[in-house]
Nucleic acid binder design. Structure first.
Length: 654
RNA sequence: GGCGAGGUAGCUCAGUCGGUCAGAGCAUGCGGCUCAUAUCCGCAGUGUCGGGGGUUCAAUUCCCUCCCUCGCUACCA
């Protein structure tokens, strides 16, 4: 029996679940169910990632301990799966004692084998640029900008000798086409690996800076860097090294991630496994983002309520169908309720639901609600069966490679062909002409195909599939379904069995409200990225209020109002503007502001702005900056901060 | 700026190792059926396959170049 181990990333508990998390979970669930039907033993793992700086800070802001905070958010993720009809076999948390032990075991092992070393983080530091330079970047040992000799500064940390496995990883990827898919991401990783030497990975943080993490077994002054901790969940969940689950399911791992965490999974993780003496996983499956139409909803609650609301409104089956049908594997897709409704009506209500219902109704009308016996097979029957066979094979082949959209598209060729077949055979005419034998065959062909379709849909729409089969008088029985044989097998549906009189599993739906007017006015803002599967370590706005400061701290800020007298693009940077602001001083202040992506120079000239006047001067990309221009922003817009009326240049903000 | 991915019917996309490859679904128009969830079936489209240049008997498919979009990355104090 083949083993199939499917995982979602463990979700970072710095934000609540949203559409992206829901999708990854649904995809993993569909894959798990698909492989179960294919006769494999499947194990589906999900969970939460709970260590790191951001969690420490967020919990502090919330007035909770990190663990309390993590418990709370982790619970939200644990509740996500049932909402979308997913059934993970296990929910792991990186704060689980077993996981912590495993991480320490692996750290110790890799340390002892010599692939973790104590080194210095940093290097050649140029005070002019305020940054570190690598040996390669220096020109004759001098800073390329300032032509001065940088000073060597270091912070001690532990490093994983990732560079050692670069060549091995390149070979492995080349030899295993399915290792990273779809191919675009495989190519991306290969070009990343082949473009230059891989740096070793810093895997520790000094406890002086961060305590919320797993302590290094060989140095109690440090905790483990979150990625090294998080990735190991995939084996700690299986009770590595001695657990039965581990022996069963490793290395049959099929990871599912969104594209934002490609590098850690495609580079860090395999090299970590290699260093720890483990087999690499089987495949990494990378999907794109869901783009979400921007509405007021996202401002207050984010996309948080979306999955729940969609499921409440349309049902888990329909929601899952839409997501799995709409997103081309690897590409971004756009989520709008209009598209959802359109898809449900066209594919589920019109094509499938109506087909199913008309088939049941005719069975009742012509055969008293019992599955008729088939008689002689006509050519049109054989043709349909052949088409169905190809459609089901297409479904299985595509689904096996995570191309769910194409798989469903393929299956729908059968659904549409069935509607056409009914039209061509015209059972109502056969009935009128009393050709009952032929009519029985036609109805049997339709019903048996309906059963096949229902079986194939179980991974995608488990509830609906089970109900369809019940209505066909064939209660769902996992042990009796052998999906690989379904395309060819015939005659499973038993004659004489009673079917339901009608079916309304896929009713037509309507948009709850007319299109929001906001959609029209700002097409540029229409699609907005929803970062799926946010993983550790992207900088992000603080989750809660910052800690309190004293009034005297505030007084340290010298905030001034000034008029922008000129603004131009930074000669050497895309996102920077070089702005001159009159602050009532002899010369206008030159401020370098990171606003070029949101403002053009003309937007600024002549405006009064608020400037932090006593910010230590600093060079940004070679240009002196003597202050900072303040802006106000939310998820969608950035606005200049200014006084409500005119103020003399240099006026103080207090 | 560097690296990567992409620009094909109104929309979402498929496809071409160069020669019935110009396609599917949705949306639109017209016609048909009545078993059915105002459903289903048939027919009809429209496209300079991003612009320009090159290679070739032949390019949407190969090469060069330009434009645009997206992602990663650097500068965002």
């Amino acid at each position: 029996m083949n083993r199939f181990f499917v995982t979602t990333p463990i979700f970072y508990v710095n934000a609540k679940p949203h559409l992206g998390h829901a999708f990854t979970t649904i995809l993993a669930d569909a894959q798990s169910r698909f492989h179960t039907l294919m006769g494999d033993e499947s194990y589906f793992l999900t969970g939460t990632d709970e260590h790191g700086d951001k969690i420490a800070k967020a919990s502090e802001a919330a007035g909770q301990s990190p663990k309390e905070y993590a418990d709370q958010i982790s619970g939200l993720f644990r509740d996500l799966a049932p909402v979308v009809g997913a059934k993970p076999n296990q929910f792991i948390r990186t704060t689980d004692p077993d996981h912590i032990k495993t991480v320490q075991k692996v750290l110790q092992k890799v340390y002892e084998s010599g692939d973790i070393y104590f080194g210095e983080y940093g290097g050649h530091y140029c005070f002019g640029c305020e940054r570190f330079y690598t040996e390669k970047e220096l020109v004759d040992g001098m800073c390329p900008d300032h032509k001065t000799k940088p000073e060597y500064i270091a912070e001690k940390n532990y490093f994983f000798r990732m560079s050692k496995y670069q060549g091995w990883l390149i070979d492995h990827i080349n030899e295993h086409p399915e290792f990273i898919r779809p191919a675009r991401y495989r190519n991306e990783v290969l070009s990343l690996l082949e473009s230059g030497a891989l740096e070793d990975l810093c895997i520790s943080r000094p406890k002086s800076r961060l305590t919320w993490g797993i302590e290094l077994p060989f140095d109690p002054d440090f905790v483990c860097y979150v990625w090294f901790d998080a990735l190991l969940n995939y084996v700690s969940a299986l009770n590595y090294p001695r657990g039965d689950k581990f022996k069963k399911f490793w290395p049959a791992a099929n990871h599912i991630v969104a594209k934002d965490i490609l590098k850690p999974h495609a580079v860090f993780w395999p090299t970590m496994l290699k260093a720890a003496g483990l087999q690499p996983y089987q495949s990494l499956n990378v999907h794109g983002y869901w783009l979400v139409r921007d509405t007021k909803m996202s401002k207050s609650l984010g996309n948080v309520v979306e999955p729940k609301r969609m499921v409440d409104t349309y049902g888990a089956s329909a929601f899952r169908y839409f997501l799995l049908r709409e997103m081309a594997f690897g590409s971004d897709a756009s989520f709008t309720e209009e598209a959802l409704v359109g898809r449900l009506n066209a594919d589920l209500a019109n094509d499938l639901g109506n087909l199913f219902n008309r088939a049941l109704a005719m069975t009742h009308k012509y055969f008293d609600g019992k599955v008729p016996s088939p008689a002689e097979e006509f050519q049109e029957d054989a043709e349909l069966k052949h088409l169905g066979l190809e459609a089901m094979q297409g479904f299985q082949e595509n689904f096996a490679e995570f191309r769910t959209a194409r798989g469903l598209e393929s299956l729908w060729e059968l659904v549409r062909a069935l509607n056409k077949y009914i039209d061509q055979t015209a059972p109502w005419t056969l009935y009128k002409n009393k050709q009952m034998a032929r009519l029985g065959t036609v109805m049997y062909v339709v019903l048996e195909h309906m059963r096949k379709v229902a079986v194939h849909l179980w991974p995608v729409m488990p509830e609906a599939s089970v109900k369809m089969l019940e209505q066909l008088g064939m209660p769902f029985d996992l042990d009796k379904i052998v999906l690989p044989k379904e395309p060819e097998v015939w005659g499973v549906l038993e004659s004489g069995v009673a079917v339901a009189a009608t079916s309304n599993l896929f009713p037509r739906v309507e948009l709850p409200e007319p299109t929001p007017p906001a959609a029209k006015e700002a097409p540029a803002l229409e699609a907005k990225k929803s970062k799926a599967d946010k993983a550790p370590k992207e900088p992000q706005a603080p989750a809660g209020p910052l800690e309190n400061i004293e009034f005297t701290d505030f007084q340290k800020l010298d905030l001034r109002v000034g008029t922008v007298v000129s603004a131009e693009k930074h000669p050497d940077a895309d996102k920077l503007l070089v702005v001159k602001v009159a602050l009532g001083e002899a010369e206008p202040r030159q401020v370098v502001a990171g606003l070029a992506d949101r403002f053009s120079p003309e937007d600024l000239v002549g405006k009064q702005v608020v400037v932090v006047a006593n910010l230590a001067p600093r060079k940004l990309r070679g240009v002196q900056s003597q202050g900072m221009i303040l802006v106000a922003k939310d998820a969608e817009v950035t606005r200049l901060l200014t006084a409500a009326g005119a103020v003399d240049d240099g006026g103080k903000v207090a």
